[in-house]
């Protein structure tokens, strides 16, 4: 904790009230500013579906959606994410009804140990939104065009921020195709 003078009333140190909107539910927390969104979810809210794999922004296991965009929650300070709509893996399914991508992950064996899986699924959901909006990737050949083919290389590049040490990449790509191909073709 900071041992220096708090620097005036603009600054809050030690713990501060933090209100997080997670999966449609408001959580009122009292957190130190240094608490990451990842740790806030896992240690303070009790939502352990979001995983810590490196805490270095280098594996993607901690991927959550903020206002429908994917981010690494290990690099996010919880205090910065108030008033944002946060979706974790626990909020992806509609009650008992799995998201099409969750079902496809099971069917295509898009995982082994399952630890990176919540991050993969959240990441892929946002990835498909980015794709639909015409966002390019590093492998997009014609950068200026917004019609991009939903190709294997596009999926792989766009999912490369999510490491899977079990090596389930083939199943992950298959699952993404199974869940989204039809919509991508529209």
């Amino acid at each position: 904790m900071s041992e220096t003078n708090s620097g005036g009333r603009e600054f809050a140190d030690r713990t501060v009230p933090v209100i997080l909107q997670i999966n449609g539910i408001k959580h009122e927390l009292q957190l130190e500013p240094r608490v990451s969104l990842l740790d806030a979810l896992r240690e303070y809210v009790g939502l352990t579906g979001t995983k810590k794999g490196c805490n270095q922004g280098a594996c993607g296991a901690c991927t959550v959606l903020v206002d429908n965009e994917r981010i690494n929650s290990c690099f996010a300070l919880a205090v910065q994410y108030q008033d944002r709509e946060i979706t974790t893996i626990e909020g992806v399914a509609h009650s008992d009804q799995l998201h099409a991508l969750q079902a496809a992950f099971i069917e295509c064996d898009g995982f082994q140990c399952g630890y990176c899986t919540p991050g993969q699924i959240c990441s892929a959901i946002a990835m498909f939104e980015e794709f639909k909006q015409g966002a390019p990737s590093a492998v997009t050949e014609h950068l200026a065009e917004t019609e991009i083919e939903f190709s294997e290389a596009e999926i792989k590049e766009r999912m490369s921020g999510n490491l899977c040490r079990c090596g389930a990449y083939v199943g992950i790509v298959e699952a993404i195709r199974e869940a989204f191909d039809k919509e991508a073709a529209r």
Partner: peptide, 17 residues
């Protein structure tokens, strides 16, 4: 398909920590 698949894709599989 894996017997624990549903737990894993919903974030409900409980790991040690």
């Amino acid at each position: 398909s894996r017997v624990d698949g549903r737990l894993k894709v919903t974030g409900k599989a409980t790991f040690a920590a």
